[in-house]
Write a protein that binds this DNA or RNA. Structure first.
Lengths: 225, 225
DNA sequence: ATAAAGCTTAAATTTAGCTTAAAATTATGA
DNA sequence: TCATAATTTTAAGCTAAATTTAAGCTTTAT
């Protein structure tokens, strides 16, 4: 899961980044509205955390522009001010939720989970066929036997399974799993697909990951016939 | 838009109903958790507003049961308590947002609008007849069965469907799909039209692509007769 | 009947993806 | 801290799939 934080106070931004990375999010930071909007429009984030009072372009303007561009990415705004007008204004501008500073990290996490829940439609039972994964503990089970994966292997498998029954394009994979935004002709994805397939095969989950040539990969939920 | 309010204090329930009906919502009220859950499960609401402290069945339990039944209806919860645990607990139980009592009606409205916004987003998938294509994932469906296309096949079909009900000339096709701008006497188009027709025929979408002799091809939206 | 346009097939060419090994980087433990 | 192990990335050869070419065949319009 990839987040963008748009926040000008380096202290808060850094604190959030550290905390969220511990929760296995991939986190980018922008320190002003303009560069934040740029990042938001040119990348595929799963959620934006936007401070309301930032230089170059206000949080509300960032919000409006993002929506104007047609993006439905969830936006959580941070505000020090607690006036009603602000909240209403912000939500109407296209934000999904807000949280007042100072806030507790736990509540922020809960609110992030709410916004991301829609993405993991089949709630938190991340599985495909006999394979199930637990993002909280980074464990993977094929039936009853556990499969040991490295962090990158896990991140890739998690992304594929979260997007079960959808084609994951190479560019999206490289963005979400590797956090690489520019075009590159690396073959890491291929290599990691090979790693994963080898381990899955050994655990009896052969050909779970299918190749869509010229596009990317897909994990299909086997039909129950 | 149809809302259900589950709230035991008649004063608050009535105030909300009146205010929301003025905003043209259709509003039902349940005065305890049990009858509220019943209503929620047997009707199609666009949003639920649930008080946390209600008799017969707590708000959190209503929330859980609704989610357990597979419904994704947005749930807004009302709480008098303002402890962190409550909020986190509620959001994790499946609520989408919460609002503290006492609240201002304006803020409630704003939060309702946020939750309903997702419903109104137009889905702009490209389709012709029973065939639909998804450029984001490069997937093609004929009804429910997926058709696997190579990248060039997909690009050609996408171009034809984007220009549905218009004749696509050979020169335009070669420009847009193959990026060839000079005149050439290649027969790739013919070959790919054959490939596409064969796959579409196999999936039950025969003669979707029609030839306009001397000019090019056209995909027609079948009239609904 | 004939010529032009389009269709189909098979073979040649090109490209994308797979695999492996080795290099570079990062984490771990004495 | 340094050495060692684990992980990640790069690079190259190989294979299979996708694309293009080319030739013969079929349909259509005059």
């Amino acid at each position: 899961m990839r987040l963008l934080i748009i926040e000008d106070e380096p202290g808060i931004a850094g604190f959030l980044k550290d905390g969220l990375e511990e929760e296995y999010f991939a986190v980018d930071i922008a320190y002003d509205g303009k560069s934040g909007l740029d990042l938001a429009l040119t990348n595929e984030y799963d959620l934006l955390i936007v401070d309301w009072m930032i230089p170059a372009l206000s949080g509300i303007e960032v919000c409006r522009q993002v929506r104007k561009a047609g993006s439905l990415v969830p936006i959580l705004f941070l505000t020090a001010k607690d006036t009603l007008e602000d909240v209403v204004f912000g939500l109407d501008a296209g934000a999904n939720d807000y949280i007042k500073k100072p806030f507790e990290f736990e509540e922020l996490l809960a609110r992030i989970r709410v916004q991301l829940r829609a993405k993991n439609k089949a709630d938190d039972s991340l599985s495909a066929g006999s394979l199930s994964i637990n993002p909280a503990t980074h464990q993977v089970f094929a039936g009853l036997n556990e499969i040991t994966l490295t962090p990158k292997e896990f991140a890739l498998l998690e992304y594929l399974i979260r997007n079960k029954d959808r084609v994951c394009t190479r560019s999206r994979i490289i963005e979400h799993v590797w956090d690489i935004h520019f075009d590159s002709d690396t073959s890491v994805i291929d290599v990691y697909i090979t790693f994963l397939r080898r381990k899955l095969e050994a655990a009896g989950c052969g050909n779970l990951i299918q190749t869509i040539r010229g596009v990317g990969y897909i994990v299909r939920q086997p039909s129950m016939v």
